[in-house]
Design a protein around this nucleic acid. Structure first.
Lengths: 152, 152
DNA sequence: TGGTTGTCTGGAATCGTTCCAGTCACCACG
DNA sequence: CGTGGTGACTGGAACGATTCCAGACAACCA
């Protein structure tokens, strides 16, 4: 967990070059997302507040929407989970999602650029992306349960 | 749109063999889903009511959950859309989703059974399914707009 | 036929997300 | 550097999809 992350990115310049204002709130959110991939809006809210910012829920959503709209972030909406956000954009990567705990992990695309796959039949669609979600059980959930642990 | 659909399936027997009671409400929902793939809960509600049933929203959800739980239906949760339900289960098919109108279309898997793909790196996950969503523009949305139509 | 219990009813609640009018603060320009 | 324009945040409220809950109903089996 103690790895170098995007604190070296010039976030103010990044925002401005995307046509956005470099507000304090946006910088806080970008810092947080850089350190915490696949965070929910609530994760972001709690995280930026823990870092000393005073932001409302709405402001968090506003910031996230602005970032996504400018292509600096994107959303992942796993079934049964509130929306998650990541700043890894501009590449064609996919996700592993754990059926147990909901953990989301990036995985590089082994095939190439979008669309990395084409459907058997396109039904008249012009396909521009093939989004792949690998469902399974993560290492933590695959571990045997501790015998003393009660099943709910 | 005038095609034969699952009206010939013995829905009562299907339900009972899955350990569920063959209630009128469930039969209505199965009939509707057979005719209308990828329907939202609201679609189902409106649809079964149009067919003469008097059902509450909660009953619709209860029925859908029971069907999904018994493996007779499954959910699709496209981003930005409420949950959708389909009765095509037991095969490994994928979906085309239109970025414009949200239309969801089934597409057969060209690769085989689950998991039809494996990730470049599994990060410790035991992968059991690779879900593919082909994003693009459907034929209807790809048509040129009518010149008199105002852009909003 | 009657009893059991899964399922539906109908009102209410939850939660993630968005709306909205007013205030604030970034930043371009003089 | 100061200032005005306007994008962005505030704070209260609303919305919609979904779930909760206690009681009534109805499928089904003996």
């Amino acid at each position: 967990m103690d790895h170098q992350h995007d604190t070296r990115v010039d976030h103010p310049a990044l925002l401005r070059s995307s046509g956005l204002r470099a507000t304090t709130q946006r910088l806080r959110v970008l810092d947080f997302l850089g350190a915490t991939p696949h965070a929910t809006a609530r994760d972001v809210l709690v995280g930026v507040r823990a870092a000393g910012a005073s932001m409302s829920t709405q402001a968090v959503y506003d910031v996230l929407h602005a970032l996504v709209g400018a292509g600096l972030a994107r959303t992942i909406e796993p079934p049964g989970s509130s929306a998650r956000y990541e700043v890894r954009v501009g590449d064609n990567h996919h996700h592993l999602i754990c059926r147990g705990c909901g953990d989301v992990t990036d995985v590089d695309c082994a095939r190439g650029t979008s669309p990395c796959l084409t459907p058997a039949t396109d039904h008249g669609f012009v396909v521009d992306e093939a989004e792949i979600v690998y469902w399974g059980t993560c290492a933590a959930c695959a571990r045997p349960t501790i015998p003393n642990e009660e099943l709910s």
